[in-house]
Design a protein around this nucleic acid. Structure first.
Length: 453
DNA sequence: TTGACTCAACATCCTTTGCTACAA
DNA sequence: TTGTAGGTTTCCATGTTGAGTCA
């Protein structure tokens, strides 16, 4: 091989092109005096060099030594038709893209099957340590080999490794060339400013994203096209409801604020709206709101307006009438398993005290949380009150009744909460109650969170 | 090993109605 | 004519997690 043949190497999350040639996606790096590109574009660069018949030496991949996964795979999971279709669509899209399926529809099994199919070193990225342990448990049963872990104090790289987003972010520049396949569970987290560098630093040409909630409120899900390959398969909740998931109905209940609360709400709300009017500020998107927050750093009036708006929201979200309505609903479902969701922890603890229902918030220790969930599963408890902790990332027992006392306008949060009551239960219709304070901005918040029908 | 703590990162955030300047 | 963006640049509060440190 002639000495002047360009060589590609991996360095700190990038592909370095040693030899003075320019390739697509590469930029000139003055410090190393070479062209380099994000690891993400490794596949494109190789394709370009091959298509252009340019000779090169490839020293980029350094894969973890891997046994024949397809032979180890205990193929005892019978994939459902839509799961099979999801994998086919992903394969047709050159082993890249995001699969969108409702909570409880078996996304993990799709990932496991794809890992066996690709038969190559793989890293699975998950948002929480709880999920990391769930994946590791499923994977070790499916392949009977040791499953690596990165995160939660563990640093053990194996042909199949599961990592948290945080740890993958920290170690990406060192291990980004060690896997050919990367699976992002709960992939809607990936476009966040920090986490996206994981996708940029890994060279893995095979990429799969799994989520129940593709869209982000900040619109950054568009980045998933570049980072993972865009949406390749989606199955609506409605098409699985009744067959693979419980049938369900949604009941929206509007309650009036008490006179005192109403007065206090109006007073605070007008401080906010008066300020907007006075400054001629329009409020149409989260971006507009963000501008107001920035403004509040230097404008005391803006700060006062924001605090008043927060107080008004607090009144609407935590009204006494909601608690009374909750009492009625709980009486009606005395023999059912119930999750109660709120926006603020203050209300969680108030309900817990008043109705003697165990609370779970981020302040609850892991041990206590597991104990509560275990007792809920065994039937000792039939209700849990929580704010947002159980929205995602924790394996939660089945329930058939959900009560949203308050929440944000996030579609994701709404879908995740609905998902908590839809795991298939024979002959059982799930019901989601949404309780909203009348004549408050919560009416709009509630409208925003509903996914398009 | 466990627990308590701090820190950084992530997520949400949305009124009532017009005005101006500029781009397509 | 119609459509659309519009004040930048450390950022109100609340909830949540993982990583890291230290006792």
């Amino acid at each position: 091989m002639p000495a002047d043949i360009p060589e590609l190497t991996y360095h700190q999350g990038t592909v370095k092109i040693n030899g003075n040639i320019s390739v697509p996606y590469a930029y000139w790096d003055e410090r190393s005096k070479t062209f380099r590109a994000h690891g993400l574009y490794y596949k494109n660069i190789i394709s370009y060099l091959k298509e252009s018949s340019i000779e090169y030496k490839d020293s980029v991949p350094n894969p973890v030594s891997c046994p024949e996964l397809k032979h180890l795979y205990k193929d005892n999971i019978q994939l459902r038709d839509y799961q099979q279709d999801a994998i086919s669509s992903w394969i047709q899209n050159n082993y890249q893209g995001v699969i969108v399926l409702p909570t409880g529809s078996g996304k993990t099994f799709i990932g496991v099957d794809a890992i066996a199919y690709c038969n190559t070193p793989v890293i699975v990225i998950v948002p929480t340590i709880d999920l990391m342990e769930q994946w590791r448990s499923i994977l070790s049963k499916a392949f009977s080999i040791e499953i690596g872990a990165l995160g939660g104090g563990k640093k053990d790289i194996q042909p199949i490794t599961v990592s948290t987003y945080d740890s993958a972010y920290i170690h990406a520049e060192k291990i980004g060339n060690r896997f050919n396949f990367i699976v992002f569970d709960e992939v809607h987290h990936l476009p966040a400013e920090g986490y996206r560098t994981i996708a940029e630093m890994f060279i893995a040409p095979y990429r799969m994203g799994l989520t129940a909630t593709y869209e982000r409120e900040d619109g950054l899900h568009k980045e998933l096209n570049r980072l993972v390959g865009g949406k390749v398969f989606e199955q609506e909740l409605s098409s699985l409801s009744g067959k693979h998931l419980s049938p369900y109905r949604i009941e929206k209940i509007t309650v009036a604020l008490k006179d005192e609360e109403k007065k206090e709400y109006k007073r605070n709300h007008s401080i906010f709206t008066d300020y907007l009017k006075k400054k001629n500020i329009s409020m149409k998107s989260p971006g507009d709101f963000q501008k107001l927050v920035i403004r509040s750093g230097s404008d005391p009036e803006a700060r006062k307006a924001l605090l008043a708006r927060n107080r008004a929201r607090e009144i609407a979200f935590n009204s006494s009438a909601k608690v009374e309505k909750l009492r009625d609903i709980l009486k009606k479902h005395i023999h059912d398993f119930v999750f109660i969701f709120t926006e603020h922890n203050q209300l969680v603890y108030r309900i817990s005290d008043e109705f003697l229902i165990p609370p779970i918030t981020y302040k609850t220790t892991t041990r206590e949380r597991n104990l509560i969930l275990e007792k809920f599963k065994s039937g000792t408890y039939n209700a849990i009150v929580t704010s947002k902790v159980l929205d995602e990332g924790i394996d939660v027992p089945e329930a058939s009744v959900g009560i949203i006392l308050s929440g944000t306008g996030s579609k994701r949060e709404y879908i995740q909460r609905l998902g908590r009551i839809l795991r298939k239960q024979k002959g059982k219709e799930a019901v989601l109650y949404e309780i909203v304070s009348a004549e408050t901005s919560e009416i709009n918040t509630s409208k925003r969170r509903k996914p398009a029908q």
